[in-house]
Design a protein around this nucleic acid. Sequence first.
DNA 1: CACACTTACGATATTCGTAAGGATT
DNA 2: AATCCTTACGAATATCGTAAGTGTG
Lengths: 300, 300
Amino acid sequence: MTVKQLRAFLAVAQHLNFLQASEQLHMSQPALSLAVKGLEEYLGGALLIRTTRSVTLTPEGELFVGLARQLLADWDSIQDKMRQRFTLQQGAVSVAAIPAFAANHLPGLLKRFYDRFPGIHITVHDVINEQVMEMVRARKVEIGVCFEPPPGSSLQFEPLGSDKLVAVLPADSPLARRATVSWAQLQQYAHIALQRPSALRLLLEQRLAKHGMALEVAFESHHLATIGRMVACGLGCSAVPELCLSQMHELGAVCRPLKGPEIVQRVGMVTSGPDILSAAAGALAEVIRSAPSPWGATGQ
Amino acid sequence: MTVKQLRAFLAVAQHLNFLQASEQLHMSQPALSLAVKGLEEYLGGALLIRTTRSVTLTPEGELFVGLARQLLADWDSIQDKMRQRFTLQQGAVSVAAIPAFAANHLPGLLKRFYDRFPGIHITVHDVINEQVMEMVRARKVEIGVCFEPPPGSSLQFEPLGSDKLVAVLPADSPLARRATVSWAQLQQYAHIALQRPSALRLLLEQRLAKHGMALEVAFESHHLATIGRMVACGLGCSAVPELCLSQMHELGAVCRPLKGPEIVQRVGMVTSGPDILSAAAGALAEVIRSAPSPWGATGQ
DNA sequence: CACACTTACGATATTCGTAAGGATT
DNA sequence: AATCCTTACGAATATCGTAAGTGTG
C-alpha cells in the first residue's frame, strides 16, 4: 500500500469518475486504474463498483474513504510540520542564562532573533550558573549562557567574552573620582555581596583567598538589582561582573575597573555537544555568537 | 516521502545503528542509508547525526520519531481493519425483516451465520413490510426480507419463496378435521385479523374484493403471536402467512391450507442494488439464500 | 588497521504513458 | 456510435545490492 494509491483512490472517490480524477492527479487514466486496482488487490476486496457508466463506492470503500482521508491529512500535516521546523517558520528554543546575562544582554539578542524568526517560541530560564549547566546537561534547554565550565565537563563551551569584576560605588564616593579602584581601597567601605551559593560569590572568595585576602561582607542579597540600589543609596560598595555595568549605571551606581588582583572569568555559550542543536537553536546560537560583544572588543 | 523511508528511519532511530537496522528491515545497509538520506533531503534538514562511530538523533529527529511512529501505527491499523472486513473477521451487517420472517426463520439463519463469522456484528430490525423497503432504500440496512416490491421500485428483489395464506383454527374447530379450508368456510366463524396498515391486511382485503368477498373482522391485533393465542383460545379463526405456521402450532392453533381463492405473495431479499453489499452482508445474503426454504420445496 | 557509514555503478523491478480492447447507454 | 474503464506493451524511472571510498577510534 502506497501513499500514491491512497491519493488515487481518494480522488476517484471524490469525483466518482476515473478520467476527472486522473486529470486532477496529473497522471494518465490507465495509470490511475492500475493504482486503484493494486490497492484493492492489496486490501483483499473491492472499494469501488465500476459499471462502465458509473463509479460508486462499496460499503468498504465508503469506510476506507474516511480512514484514508484522515491518514493522508496526518501525513501531510507531519510533513509540513517538519519542513516548517527546518525552515525556521515554527519551533521552540529554550535558553538558560545566568542573571547578569539574562537581564542585561539577552533581551536585545532575543529581539533580533524574534524579528527574523517570529514563528519560533522562546523560553528563557534566568537561573544561577550551576543550574544553567545542569539544565543543558539534562537537555532541559538547548543553549546555556554561563561561566566557563571546569575542564572535564561533558559540556561544549564556546566563549563569548571575558568578564572582569568591576567595583560598584555610590556616585558621591571618594573612590568614584579615581580611574581605577583596588581591592584594598574597596574594602575600606562596607561590602555588599551576592548571597551564596552564587558562583560569583564563591569565585570571589576563592580568588581573594589566593591573594591572602578575605571578604568581609556587611550586606547580602540574591539580586544584582538590589545590590545596585543599595550601593546607589550609599549603603556601601560592591563588585559585580562587567556584564552588569549598564544595569548598575541605570540603578544610579558608578562602576570602576577593579585591580589588584583582577578577577576574570570567561563567559560563553554551553551546549550538550557539537552539532546537536535544533535548527531553531542553531539560528539563535548564531545570533548570540555574531552579536556585538557586551565586553567591547575584549574578546575571549 | 514514502512509507518505506519512514520505516527505515524508525529502525535506525531504534537501533541507533544502520547495520542492525538494515538487517531488521531485510535490506542492504547502503540502501538503508539512501532511504534515510532521501527522507532528510525531502524534509529539508537532518534527522540523525552520523559521527562514523555513533548515530544519534537531532532534536528534529527526536520529534519526528514520535510523529512517524504514530503515523505508521495508524497506517498499519487501517490496513488491518480493511483486511479484516474483507476476510469477514470483523464488520457489521444490518438486516430488516417483516415480523413473520424475523420471528420465525431469521434467528436460525443468524445462528448459522454467527457460527461461521463470530466477529461480525448483526443488527436486526423487526419492522413492517413498508418500513423494510424504506430502510433498504435509505441504506439504513443492507439487506431486507419482505414481500415482493411493486414493479418500478428501485430496489433489487431476490425471491426466496412464495407464501400462501393458511387458515388458523382452534384445535377443536370442526374445520380442523378437514384437509383444506375454503374462505367461505372460514368466514362462518369470527375473524381475527392483523390491524392496518399491515401489508398483509391490505393484501387480504384487495384479493378478497377481487373475488367479490369482503372481510368481516371481529378482532384485531398488531402481533401475530397475539392472533395465534386468540385463535388457540377459541375466540375465532384467522389467516396468516404460511411462514408463521410453526409459530401458530407452538401457540396452540392449527393450520390448514386455504383455497378458493388461494392468496399468494412472493417473499424475498431486497437490496438497494446489485453488487453493492459489503463483504459481510454478501456472506449473510448467501446464508439466507442457501438455507432450506421455510416453504418446503414450493420454490418461488 | 578495523569498523561503520557514504558514494558509485550496474542490474533489477516498478511505474507510467500510449495504444488497443470491451462493455454499456 | 460514443463514452468510460480495463488490459497490453514498450519506455522511463526508481530502487536495490555489490563494490569501492572515507573518516574515526
